[in-house]
Amino acid sequence: MSKTDSDIKISIRDVHKSFGSNHVLQGVDLDVCPGRSMVVIGGSGTGKSVLLKCILGLITPDSGSIIIDGKPVTHLSERKRAKVMAKFGMLFQGGALFDSLSVWENVAFRLLYADGVGRKAAKQRAEAALNQVNLGAEVMNLSPAELSGGMQKRVGLARAIVAKPEILFFDEPTTGLDPITADVIDNLIRRQVTALGATAVSITHDMGSVRKIADDVAMIHEGKIIWRGPVKDVDNSGNDYVQQFVTGSEDGPIKVLAR
């Protein structure tokens, strides 16, 4: 199957990124197709969050190219960047809520400050988005510091989806949630892709989530994508690393520190 440029939403080519002597990304190649849900798996500290931030332009790669909708995005002016960002919704691993604003202002931030939506309309849309992540109107006027970790994560999720962006990034959306809420979130992510036609790139450690939300899976290890394929193939990938990750076994090619 040959792919033309328009078949690819996000194209990552030979991306390198080091922090001092810590070579985190060492030549990542990855394509994400429009309207599909890509899940990146990999051990802790392998650079999944760094990869996501490179795509978003928050970290500039040392070398390599990142192309979104056919346009390179690694070196953009502030104004052009803001335009590209309008396509994105991002859930940060730590939530990254603004603690000087209330919950609903956090969720409606883009609407209020970048899109110029009126406060009343923005508040209604924020409430609708909060409902989608199983949060009621009673949290709207709280400050983020008054919420539990899992609730903060869901507020972050509501903030990512509120403007119905084309491309969604979720950094560990269900970590720290109870299994029932996690399932709600998994379904929500799935619905963004199937019903709204969004493209999603998610990071998760939870194989249950992977099976629910992924169309495609990519595994990152030692700075490279070592395997990618459709989700139905993860259980018989023929790759020892993926096999070990899926079964969660201590024995395998991925070295865990001996206790």
């Binding site: 803001a82 960002m85 940060f92």
Partner: peptide, 14 residues
């Protein structure tokens, strides 16, 4: 350090 500045950028706010 809590990535709120990164979040601002992703929300199209300089």
């Amino acid at each position: 350090v809590t990535e709120q500045i990164d979040a601002l950028e992703t929300l199209s706010t300089d």
